[in-house]
Design a protein around this nucleic acid. Structure first.
Lengths: 110, 110
DNA sequence: TTGTTATATCGTAATATTGCGATATTAAAA
DNA sequence: TTTTAATATCGCAATATTACGATATAACAA
């Protein structure tokens, strides 16, 4: 075992969960926030900013890139990462649909 | 290794990430959606609904309970789970703060 | 009491994730 | 061309997660 049984869930549930999962690591939250705060692209400034090794950050960047939330463009000998606004808006929409549902419980729990 | 270095991140980043992490599994997304759709409490109906073993579901419920998003009350010989509306609203707020930030990039990425 | 039912917990195997050093790769600089 | 700088990838050790059978626990039913 140790293997998530994705087959038994809907595509939507799997997609939403895997988005949540990518954001479920403080380094990736920090990276996203850093990009957003900078209001600009970043290269491996992050290696200095966060306290993680270059290889580790590269790996986290890759995971974020896989979701499409960020994109990287080669810029001379460094790589420029920034938020893909189109995908970001889609992600926003997906989360808002999930979180802003009305949760009205016929409360049997006191 | 294999150990997240939480010390190097802010409390906020750690908290947000761990919330995301809990929701980062399709079974837990499905459980939450089921409770929300039922607009009522649930017991282990889930064991029939999802295709997971009772022990597994119990474990997922525990993780959701740990975040406070759901609460369980003993009701005779079964347990009644439902959304804790107060916590749910807090979680909504946290996610909204994160996702509804303005992401304005001085786009150097074409 | 003795079952029966609903749920939790334990133990464990399979798999996934995290982190990093070492090593590629690629492009500018000297 | 050689060096240097920035980033990616590989391989691995440490740890975490997922899933589940087996077993415990607790409450009602007979």
């Amino acid at each position: 075992m140790g293997l998530t049984k994705s087959e038994i869930f809907t595509d939507e549930q799997n997609k939403l969960a895997s988005l949540f999962k990518v954001l479920g690591h403080p380094a990736r939250v920090a990276i996203l926030q850093y990009i957003i705060d900078q209001k600009a692209c970043i290269c491996n400034d992050l290696v200095g900013e966060l306290g993680l090794a270059q290889a580790t950050i590269s790996q986290h960047l890759k995971e974020l890139k896989n979701t499409g939330i960020i994109q990287g463009t080669i810029e001379g000998k460094s790589v420029c990462y920034c938020i893909d606004e189109k995908i970001w808006k889609q992600v926003q929409a997906a989360f808002n649909a999930f979180f802003n549902q009305e949760v009205k419980v016929i409360s049997c729990c006191p």
